[in-house]
Design a protein around this nucleic acid. Structure first.
Length: 584
RNA sequence: CGGGGUGUAGCGCAGUUGGUAGCGCACCGCGUUUGGGACGCGGGGGUCGGCGGUUCGAGUCCGCCCACCCCGACCA
């Protein structure tokens, strides 16, 4: 490629609206251009890198038996109504009507399309195991796109779908993806860690995420250095501390004016947060499948120890809620509780005339083993001392609903865990029969019975991957993408000379390397050396070859490796061979 | 959706008490240059985010709206 003909231009200035290094550099180097919030054009350089990433993906997924297809982005809403996701998913889903007023969906993911395909194609256990995949556009109208390609609204995803006749088969394909994904990230030069995760809107049994550790990440991970346990905070388990027994003391009401928060309360009473109970109020919408009818919301009265945070994901999973939102002050009062001074003590939740909503009390599993906690008195300005679970109140559910945090005891080995931030690069799900049952994907088993197909789904976001690779591989001068995914392998910087000999030598080298099958970006512009060098650093092609009088005098070209800075002289005739060795 | 910020040339920005809109880079022409973002001369480029209001007069003051960015809520 001649740089004088390249469509994209580099920029000297840092774009004013980009914060993250990857975002700034991808724009400055001319890889991407924004069209709207979270919507980008991939320019020729990014397009080439993405194609290389795609080819790595194809090789790895084909190697585990994948067959590439291409499913539509625009889909009839009927499919999504069948699985219930039309109703479960909110404004994140792109919806519109076609000319005959039919509800349509912009695909966020392709489980429905896959299930529809499967129910029409798969009849027999003999057709499985099977694995189909595509690399396709997704639309997710994120409430807050940010960080350039890392959190976009429109993006390309590799998503594959495994089909099995039994659970053992799913386990095999799940593990195959786990391994293939690790190879994909390794080949792209991106370090990732795997963690147990929540299955979120996908549903299903088991899930893992592939995380790129980076402070800019939006997920919080817990990792045990001692035994290797790692999980997303959304689902991370932890050992609750041992509580030394105490004699339950008599309840005592004390005035605690203006002590609405745990911090104010502990300061006022001179106790530590672990001696208090924290009440959190939420309104839950129960999960539904495939039905449009109104569902009864319920009021959730959640209690965790004062030094811990409620984990809404765990809670939602525990009570099988589709959606949780904070309760309003009116709703809290209607249960008889006093906002800021609330506890389940002394409340009767059976009278629904006030709340119009059933109430469930859910307490964290640590609470029943605690003694003499401080809790709200359900009267503004007062708390109760010596509240004991069992004696003073009970719960409908006792469960793990608290978040693990830095230092929490590992659920496996009880050693303290560490917290870190990560970007979700890939997510794999054991869907099981969540979609096949809802959409009637049945096959005839060996014994003649009819059974639902057992599915798995697996995804990697391509743009996010490119952005994180850029995040990992850059310096103050620009990008230095790994050779496996760099848009070109060699960047020839052709300097000008009075005699024209450097131009001629650069042109010859360009032709020769291209003929040898090497991808070359040749800077043939009439710009000054500084401009060319700076652009080469910014774009970050792995091997830079400078053709100038200085090098030609020594019988060759100066090479410089972008990633390491290693440099020297290569004789012109040996360049193709040297390059081939390096980019392998 | 809540909080904060920014919208002026392709990019980065300035624009005072309200008085016909500027700088740097980029771009075009000519010339001189040519090893780390050259120089001279000349030139083109604007619905000052939009609509409405105040005013003799609005980039500037007021109101509403929109877009983009950041924090939070949210998020496979």
């Amino acid at each position: 490629m001649l740089m004088s003909r390249m469509f994209s231009q580099t920029r000297r200035e840092v774009p004013a609206d980009a914060d993250l290094a990857s975002h700034q550099l991808l724009i400055r180097a001319g890889f991407i251009r924004p069209l709207a919030a979270g919507i980008f054009t991939y320019m020729p350089l990014a397009f080439r890198s993405l194609q290389k990433i795609q080819n790595i993906m194809r090789e790895e997924i084909n190697a585990i038996g994948g067959q590439e297809i291409n499913m539509p982005v625009v889909q009839p809403a009927d499919l999504w109504k069948e699985t219930g996701r039309w109703y479960q998913i909110g404004s994140e889903m792109g919806r519109f009507k076609d000319k005959s007023d039919r509800d349509m969906v912009l695909a966020m993911t392709h489980e429905e399309a896959t299930a529809d395909l499967v129910r029409n194609e798969v009849r027999s256990y003999r057709q499985m195991p099977s694995l189909i995949y595509h690399i396709q556009t997704k639309w997710r109208d994120d409430p807050r796109p940010r960080a350039g390609l890392i959190r976009a609204r429109e993006f390309t995803m590799l998503d594959s779908y495994s089909l099995d006749a039994d659970w053992d088969g799913l386990a095999v394909q799940y593990q195959a993806h786990y391994d293939a994904y690790k190879r994909i990230f390794a080949r792209c030069g991106l370090p990732v860690v795997t963690v147990e995760s929540d299955s979120g809107m996908m549903g299903g049994k088991e899930a893992h995420e592939f995380m790129y550790l980076n402070p800019a990440g939006e997920d919080t991970l817990l990792h045990c250095p001692a035994c290797g346990y790692s999980a997303n905070r959304e689902v991370a388990d932890f050992h609750r501390p041992e509580i030394s027994p105490e004699e339950p003391a008599a309840l005592q009401k004390v005035a605690t004016p203006d002590a609405k928060s745990i911090e104010e309360l502990t300061n006022f009473l001179h106790v530590t947060p672990d001696r208090t109970a924290k009440a959190v109020f939420l309104v839950a919408t129960p999960a539904v499948t495939g039905s449009e009818k109104e569902v009864q919301q319920e009021f959730i009265f959640a209690v965790v120890r004062g030094d811990m945070e409620l984990n809404e994901i765990k809670l939602a999973n525990e009570i099988k809620a589709m959606e949780l939102r904070p309760a309003t002050e009116e709703e809290i009062i209607s249960t008889g509780a006093a906002p800021g001074y609330a506890s389940p003590v002394g409340l009767d939740f059976h009278d629904l005339s006030q709340t119009h909503m059933p109430v469930r009390v859910v307490v964290d599993e640590l609470i029943p083993s605690c003694f003499n906690l401080v809790a709200g008195a359900n009267e503004a300005g007062y708390h109760l001392l010596n509240v004991n679970y069992g004696r003073d109140y009970t719960a409908d559910i006792v469960a793990d609903i608290a978040s693990a945090s830095e230092g929490s005891a590992c659920p496996v080995c009880s050693k303290p865990m560490q917290e870190s931030r990560g970007v979700e690069m890939g997510h794999i799900f054991k869907l099981g029969t969540r979609y096949s049952e809802a959409m009637g994907c049945m096959f005839t088993a060996e014994d003649g019975s009819s059974k639902p197909v057992i599915m798995g789904s697996y995804g990697i976001g391509l743009g996010r991957l490119l952005a994180c690779i850029a995040e990992e591989h850059h310096d103050e001068k620009g990008l230095c993408l790994p050779a496996s995914i760099a848009p070109y392998q060699v960047h020839i910087v052709g300097l000008s000379s009075k005699t024209g000999e450097t131009e001629a030598a650069a042109q010859t080298l360009y032709t020769e390397l291209t003929r040898a099958g090497i991808e070359v970006l040749y800077d043939d512009r009439t710009a000054t050396a500084g401009v060319k060098f700076n652009d080469a650093d910014l774009i970050g092609i792995p091997i830079r070859l400078t053709i100038g009088e200085r090098g030609l005098k020594q019988g060759g070209a100066e090479y410089k490796l972008r990633a390491t800075g290693e440099s020297g002289i290569w004789k012109l005739e040996e360049i193709p061979e040297k390059v081939k060795v390096l980019v392998q």
